[in-house]
Simulated scan of single mutants.
Amino acid sequence: MGEIVVVENVTLDGVMQAPGGPAEDTRGDFRFGGWARPYADQVSAATMGKGMSEDGALLLGRRTYLDLHGFWAKQDDGNPYTEVLNRKTKYVVSRTLAEPLPWEHSVLLGGEPTDAVARLRADLTAPVVVLGSGMLVRALAAAGLVDRYVLSIHPLVLGSGTRLFGAGAAAYRELTLVETVTSTTGVIIATYRP
């Protein structure tokens, strides 16, 4: 059975919305897009790069898939993430997209999201990494389908924005801390298991 691994950037108050750039996700008049960028360093890059280089696939919600495709599929600057993202199989949970999907190595998972992911998890042997995809992550957590969380916790409080464990998140759930790495900019990369 495969393992579902949620990898997220979050603030101390749990905001996960638009860590990469101002235009990434402005829903709800969110104006703090790009909040994670000033905290990037070699420690974070090496830690996240190690996970990205492992075998396995990506699992993405529709919005995150389209956002990633819109940026990464067009990059030709030699960034190692480009090659990894282009070569990995990308499973996309969506009720509105249709095949063929625009990005190479993309597979549409239609139907009820948690049922589709449960079947995928049972069929695979390597980890499946979820990036972004907040609605999907909350649904998977509520269904008990997340095996590991890798959270880059930034020393920042925004006070508004979509939270990782906000509305629709699983009710009471205990997590066990299994590893931490602290970056030079104060980001704690914490790995938890339910």
Rank of each mutant, 00 (worst) to 15 (best):
Ala126Val: 12
Arg95Val: 09
Ala143Asp: 05
Ala169Asp: 00
Thr96Glu: 14
Tyr91Ile: 08
Thr89Trp: 12
Thr114Gly: 08
Gly168Lys: 06
Asn86Met: 15
Leu131Glu: 02
Leu120Ala: 12
Tyr149Asn: 02
Glu174Val: 05
Ile153Glu: 02
His105Gln: 14
Ala118Cys: 07
Val150Pro: 02
Ala167Gly: 11
Leu68Pro: 03
Gly134Phe: 01
Ser133Ile: 10
Leu97Gly: 07
Leu85Ala: 13
Asp76Thr: 10
Leu120Arg: 07
Val150Ala: 03
Phe71Asp: 09
Val146Arg: 02
Met135Arg: 06
Gly134Glu: 03
Ser160Tyr: 09
Arg173Lys: 14
His69Tyr: 15
Asp147Arg: 02
Gly161Cys: 02
Asp76Met: 09
Val93Ala: 12
Arg173Pro: 06
Arg173Asn: 06
Glu112Phe: 03
Lys74Ile: 00
Pro80Met: 07
Ala98Ser: 13
Glu104Leu: 11
Leu145Lys: 01
Asp77Thr: 08
Asn79Thr: 10
Leu145Tyr: 03
Asp115Lys: 12
Phe165Gln: 00
Val157Met: 08
Tyr91Trp: 14
Arg173Glu: 08
Lys88Leu: 13
Ala143Phe: 02
Asp147Val: 02
Arg173Gln: 15
Tyr149Lys: 01
Pro127Ser: 06
Phe71Cys: 14
Trp72Tyr: 07
Glu104Asp: 13
Asp147Cys: 04
Gly110Ile: 12
Val128Phe: 03
Gly110Lys: 12
Ala170Gly: 07
Glu83Ser: 15
Ala171Asn: 05
Gly166Lys: 01
Arg95Glu: 13
Leu156Thr: 08
Ala142Gln: 00
Ala170Glu: 06
Glu104Ser: 14
Val93His: 04
Ala122Lys: 02
Tyr81Glu: 14
Leu131Arg: 03
Leu108Asn: 10
Trp103Met: 12
Lys88Thr: 14
Gly168Gln: 09
Asp123Cys: 12
Leu68Glu: 13
Val92Ser: 00
Ala143His: 01
Lys90Tyr: 01
Leu156Cys: 10
Leu85His: 07
Arg163Tyr: 03
Gly78Ser: 08
Val137Phe: 05
Val92Pro: 00
Leu140Gln: 01
His105Asn: 14
Arg173Leu: 05
Lys74Tyr: 08
Arg121Met: 05
Met135Ala: 09
Arg148Val: 05
Trp72Thr: 09
Asp147Ala: 06
Leu158Val: 08
Ile153Gly: 03
Gly70Tyr: 11
Ser133Asn: 10
Pro102Tyr: 12
Ala167Leu: 14
Val129Met: 15
Val93Pro: 03
Glu104His: 12
Pro155His: 08
Gly111Leu: 04
Val128Ser: 02
Tyr91Ala: 09
Val128Trp: 06
Tyr91Lys: 09
Ala169Leu: 01
Ala118Met: 04
Thr176Asp: 13
Leu151Lys: 06
